[in-house]
Amino acid sequence: MEDFSEIGAIWRGETRRALRSGRVLVLLILFLLFVGLALTVVGFFNHQLNAKFDQQMAMAGADLSQAREQLAAGKKQFLQTFVTEDPAMLDSLAAIPIVLLVVFKLTLRFLPLFIALMGFDQLAGEVGPKSVRYLVVRVKRSSIILGKLLSQVTLFAILMSICTVMMVMVAKVLNTEFAAADVALWTGKLIISSMVLSLAYLSLTALFSALVKQGGISLVLNVIALFVIWFVALIGEAVRFPGEVAAEGTLAMLKAESAFAYLRYASVWHFGDDLLHPHWGRFLTAALVHVGFGLAFLGLAQLALRRRDL
């Protein structure tokens, strides 16, 4: 019980401190600007394409509904080639506006790096100037890590909620056929999936921050680790499983068969896409993998901080 109150006190204190810190506020604003810019660019092209399409259809006097069906088929083909070969996932993603999908995916790609930039000095920044000593005589070291992690989770929950609402609103304005029920569903789904995805990377950042004294070194190691995670997934996904049959018209046809394909399971990055999967089983598996990686990184962070001189 005392542990919870310690963690709660650190969480409240660290969140207050983060919101007061100029650097954190600047980073939050930059991320929002990045999302805003991506929305503007992708939204603009999306709007232009839609307008041009409608104009051409009107001029040609073509059957608009048939033309729209053809456009949807083209979109699905694009998604199958560049995003996913999973039929259920394909149907699900094809139902949402392309601007929402593209900007959300883009946001998720940069999220781990942004998390590293936000939290690299959460512990290292206190060990170097020794201000952590004011904390360790009062609370358990494990409470310090968990309290600070919860504070980062809170900041990201707020940030991702704002970003997602922004994306969905723009998508709704640009695509009038995006139904209100779908808007609500996808808003919740995107927020949940981005938060689950964040857990693993927030814990990774906590780990590197707990390992070293200097914030700068923590950031460099964190970025290297992100690169390794991404690279392992890339190698694993660049080849097909031995004996796997590739579907017609997909990128998989270009891939060679290799046992290296199993390497993808060693990287949390590989499971990120499944967080949007319409089947609960696939979503839960991906979520559990992210939580598992998060717990493993957190456990290592606890171990590192518990046994080190401060």
Binding site: R17, R20, S21, E126, S131, R133, Y134
Partner: peptide, 10 residues
């Protein structure tokens, strides 16, 4: 503690 810096933003 000697040389431990208080968090400056508080």
């Amino acid at each position: 503690p000697q040389d431990a810096i208080l968090p400056p933003m508080w």
